[in-house]
């Protein structure tokens, strides 16, 4: 196992993928970022906090292997090891699926903390896929986080909701509550970026978004059929064949672990000649 080779294990990080608004690409981004980290050899687990709307395991392509789930573990009905599902493609990638039959009230702060503490022993990165909204499920997903990735689409309501979530990250989390703790490091991941629509003025520009949110930019993921396809066949974008979107996620992962990567849009720095001549493709 690769993880066993890395003896001098760095302190594990809990990263919440959140947004406020639904449908912006949280789960897709959780799967892609988790897979991207695992591909680089970091032992990574992705936890589905969206209790009752089990999606992560579908996007990760392991829904038929779910026996026990996060809620079973919290309620003491199963051991963590029984609920964790190891990815068949990358052996450092694990999924902790959630329950489809329960709801967010089944999550308890103590239960979540206990599970996260146990995972911290094993894993380098713990990715928490937050549900939409700002209620209990979302607040518990972010409560114990060390870092946050706020997924935003370049449109007004999504940006406003992200702003609200950034406010919660700074006020309703463990790091915010603890005196002297470093605040959660939050970065924005711009998804469903569509340059044509932005140029037509139908969507906000990157600068507009960053000006409002006032946090660092983790990456720009273009709107791409590759994302939709990967979701439907249950393959995280970065494990599928290369595309502008997968490249964007790879870059985002590199920045997440502290590498300096130049920001590219649409997988290129500038629109290429062919692209200009033949129109747009993924």
């Amino acid at each position: 196992m690769t993880s066993q080779l890395k003896k001098e294990k760095s302190v594990s990080k809990v990263i919440v993928i959140t947004s406020g608004k639904g449908g912006v690409g949280k789960t897709t981004s959780s799967a892609a970022i988790g897979a991207g980290l695992a591909k680089r050899g970091h032992k990574t687990v992705v936890i589905d906090f969206d209790v009752g709307l089990r999606n992560l395991d579908m996007i990760m392509g392991c829904e038929r292997r779910v026996v026990y789930d996060f809620i079973n573990v919290i309620q003491g009905e199963a051991k963590l090891k029984q609920a964790l599902i190891r990815d068949k493609r990358v052996d450092t990638l694990y999924v902790l699926p959630t329950s489809q039959t329960r709801d967010k009230d089944a999550l308890t702060q103590e239960g979540v903390e206990a599970v996260l503490n146990e995972l911290r022993e094993e894993f380098d990165y713990i990715i928490c896929d937050s549900p939409a909204g700002i209620e209990r499920g979302a607040q518990l997903a972010m409560y114990f986080a060390d870092e946050a990735v706020v997924v935003t689409n370049p449109e007004v309501s999504s940006v406003r909701d992200s702003d609200r979530v950034l406010g919660l990250l700074n006020s309703k989390t463990k790091r915010a509550a603890e005196e002297g703790a470093e605040p959660i490091k939050a970065q924005v991941l711009l998804t469903r970026y569509d340059r044509a629509r932005i140029e037509k003025g139908e969507m906000m520009t990157v600068d507009d978004v960053l000006e409002i949110l006032a946090v660092p930019l983790l990456g720009i993921v273009p709107e791409s059929p590759a994302v939709l396809k990967a979701s439907n066949v249950g393959v995280p974008v970065v494990l599928d064949e290369p595309s502008a979107a997968s490249q964007a996620y790879e870059d985002a992962v590199a920045r997440l672990i502290g590498e300096e990567v130049e920001m590219r849009v649409d997988g290129e720095r500038k629109p290429g000649l062919l692209r200009r001549l033949f129109g747009r493709s993924a």
Binding site: R160, D161, D163, R164, L166, G167, L168, S171, A214
Partner: peptide, 8 residues
């Protein structure tokens, strides 16, 4: 001295 967010 920190941004005041929506809802705050």
């Amino acid at each position: 001295s920190t941004p005041v967010r929506s809802g705050q």
